[in-house]
């Protein structure tokens, strides 16, 4: 078994938007992402997927628990500062909304090469422009985009630009927070194929967050299902889709639309199983590599 690149250990995060309001976005999440794999994270809106990604990128400071990246504890300020440069170069984030993740007043060339400028890395291909052009080529855009501003690009072009920006430092880990959710269905397929291609070419580890199960099934090696701030099931993607064990996963999989109206009409309405009790539960390895959340009382 390859070694883990990222390890979440009992990660919890709570938001306190008001004096007496506490929103527990993550509750005791533990799992690891192996080096070089594509890890899919699915779940309904507000289940804590993005919070997890943002904790991993150090945008939020988790309330408790640890995140180990190559053995460095990301929640520990001292260790983080020590490895600051390494972390900034090796982790990259791709956002959901490509329109707001690109500065509307910058040209594509400068957007793509911004990481190089920040990290003061000499462009390996001579000039920044050549480097930007190369990166754009690799995500399927041509050099004519270099002088455009994000406003002049289409949604998929913008998302390609932000992928190029994430790739330019040759990162080890790419975290994509619903990168395809704001795109058209046909474009989604293009971008997902691009991700698969790029991952093969560069070999980075990829945390792919989505709520579209069919995309996850196509792209990911392993998949985790989240609900209410917990990881309820974690298994290799094929295993998860053929043999879902947790009732929530079963319900979620049954809701994948099928392009046949007769079959769709006959389908029973989606009903989510009652939420997990607030009690502590633990992930139990049911079959090899297949983990399911089980409350202590059930076992």
């Amino acid at each position: 078994m390859p070694d883990a690149l990222v390890e979440f250990q009992h990660l919890s995060h709570a938001f306190r938007p008001g004096r007496h309001i506490v929103i527990k976005a993550l509750r005791d999440v533990s799992f690891s992402i192996q080096k070089g794999e594509i890890f899919g994270l699915v779940g309904e809106s507000g289940c804590g997927k993005s919070t997890l990604a943002r904790c991993l990128m150090n945008i939020y400071q988790p309330s408790s628990g640890r995140i180990l990246y190559k053995g460095v504890d990301l929640c520990d300020g001292k260790a983080r500062r020590q490895h600051r440069r390494m972390l900034q170069r090796e982790r990259q984030l791709i956002f959901q909304d490509s329109a707001s993740s690109l500065n509307p007043r910058m040209r594509v060339e400068r957007i793509v090469t911004e990481p190089l400028v920040i990290q003061r890395i000499a462009p390996p291909r001579g000039s920044l422009r050549a480097e930007a052009e190369h990166q754009l080529r690799s995500v399927g855009l041509d050099a004519s985009c270099l002088n455009k501003t994000p406003v002049e690009l289409s949604g998929s072009q913008r998302q390609r630009v932000s992928i190029a920006r994430a790739l330019i430092l040759e990162p080890e880990l790419i975290v994509a927070d619903e990168p395809i959710a704001s795109l058209d269905v046909s474009i989604q397929a293009q971008i997902v194929t691009l991700f698969k291609h790029l991952q093969l070419a560069h070999g980075f580890t990829f945390l792919f967050i989505a709520h579209d199960l069919s995309m996850v099934r196509y792209l990911c090696d392993r998949t985790g299902v989240m609900r209410g701030g917990r990881l309820v099931e974690l298994a290799p993607t094929r295993e998860l889709f053929s043999n879902p064990l947790h009732p929530y996963t079963q319900a979620l999989l049954s809701a994948i639309p099928f392009p046949d109206p007769l079959r769709e009409r006959a389908r029973p309405a989606f009903s989510a199983p009652p939420p997990e009790p607030a009690r502590e539960g633990a992930l139990v390895e049911v079959t090899p590599d297949h983990f399911v959340l089980q409350s202590p009382s059930c076992t």
Partner: peptide, 11 residues
């Protein structure tokens, strides 16, 4: 997001 992204890159 672009400011968040720039901070992640170490700007």
């Amino acid at each position: 997001d672009y400011v968040v992204a720039a901070r992640c890159m170490g700007g």
